[in-house]
Design a protein around this nucleic acid. Structure first.
Lengths: 144, 144
DNA sequence: TGACGTCCCATGAAATCCCATGTTATTCCA
DNA sequence: TGGAATAACATGGGATTTCATGGGACGTCA
């Protein structure tokens, strides 16, 4: 599977539309669904992007615990599947971010796409800059 | 199979009618039956929605169990299939919830549809908010 | 006949599609 | 290797369609 690498900044227009970087797009489209799944991160004010195929394999794992057992699988899948938003690309490769997604990440005019290997994140530029500084500090002294 | 993802809130009118979110609708209509199967959840005050095709595969799963175990599966399946309510869409994609269904979930004016992968749930808004909080708590520290 | 459920039509808001354009990256040829 | 031609990409705005929702008409069952 193709990886999400490097960082891109794109504009968010008045309608909430934003271009998914072309290199990410080609990594996202593995199956029938021409789009991306975005989930508000529970740890940071950012969005996380996955391919639909990733969601399906997760779903299969959940289904192996059957639907009738007294497990908490419902509780777990609610935060994951319930908060996930599937967004299809338009002809030019854009998606329309919902108000909830925009609000969660504090995004207004610009959005930073950060590749993280098998997934990627979307940040508000200032929040990302701050976060990036912190992570550089942590890495000080480490070999590249 | 298409997954049920994300969360939608729709109104329930005086007649008990409610629009099934269009994205769920398209995931529901795989076979001949133009509708959805709703079942009162036995563990929470909510309704669970399945595609008719899913009911069939569940039924097969029950049958296989019966061959090997003299368990309570008859009782379980009776409670499950016996309480299931198949509802067809009208021309605009709505279904009419029965009084029993409304009462079980405590739904009056609004209904929250929550995607859980292969199924979805319908909640009364306040009850959902509470449940959602629990779910987030449970997932604390998990990735994403 | 009265309550209830189903069918049909109307409407406003919101999401999606479609076309146009500037800018950047890439190719191709001399 | 320069430099022009071409393609890919991001972006803007308008037009169109979809979707959710409300209300009325009709039929039916008790």
């Amino acid at each position: 599977m193709a990886l999400f690498l490097s960082t891109h900044t794109n504009k968010v227009d008045a309608k909430g539309r934003v271009s998914i970087p072309a290199v990410f797009r080609s990594a996202l489209v593995q199956d029938a669904f021409q789009g991306v799944v975005l989930i508000p991160s529970r740890r940071v004010p950012a969005l996380e992007g996955f391919a639909m195929g990733m969601m399906q394999s997760l779903s299969e794992r959940f289904d192996r615990f059957d639907l009738f057992s007294a497990s908490d699988s419902d509780l777990e899948s609610m935060a994951f599947f319930g908060d996930a938003v599937p967004l299809s690309f338009d002809e030019t490769g854009r998606v329309g971010l919902t108000k909830e997604l925009l609000a969660h990440a504090g995004i207004t005019e610009n959005a930073v796409f950060v590749g993280l290997g098998t997934k990627f994140q979307i940040w508000e530029p200032k929040a990302y800059a701050k976060r990036h500084q912190e992570s550089l500090k942590k890495m000080q002294g480490t070999a590249t």
